[in-house]
Amino acid sequence: MSARHERAVAFTLNGRRVGATVATHETILEVLQREFGLFGARESCGQGLCGCCTLLVNGTAVSGCLYFAAFADGAELTTVEGLAKNGELHPIQRAFVEKSGFQCGFCTPGFILMTKELLSRHPQPTEDEIRHYLSGNLCRCAAYPDIIAAVKRAAELMRA
């Protein structure tokens, strides 16, 4: 692989300045797993449909399986591993535990991060807003009723 096909990238990952050398065709998801051992974002459908690979780039949710790692240069990235602070779960995480908003758990980080974007824009989301934001995150175990309950609970915890 020629040097033109590689990139040195630097970005903020969960609050920490980091760098990596990435191939042009690598997705950010692959780099998070290979370079940083972060597996909370996971590739499932590989098409941007299921949401298992959701991460936040500059505060907005993206599909990590479609996002070239080279494009992360200079950005601020947040994965589910970056939500807990000082060993304390983030209120959204607490709400998902409290309401059992998951079964197998594979899609859960994606739902949590999408909820984070939702609540940052709509701190008191309506049912319609919740469905609008989460409609692109799929749960094959179909824990949807519990997930929606968890999102509502998360909104309460974050206002508290």
Partner: peptide, 21 residues
Amino acid sequence: MPRLESTAKVDGSVEYIHNLR
């Protein structure tokens, strides 16, 4: 009662073979 592994499933640390390298 909630699942024993609840915390690991919300903080990304839960083990799947998918993650193994």
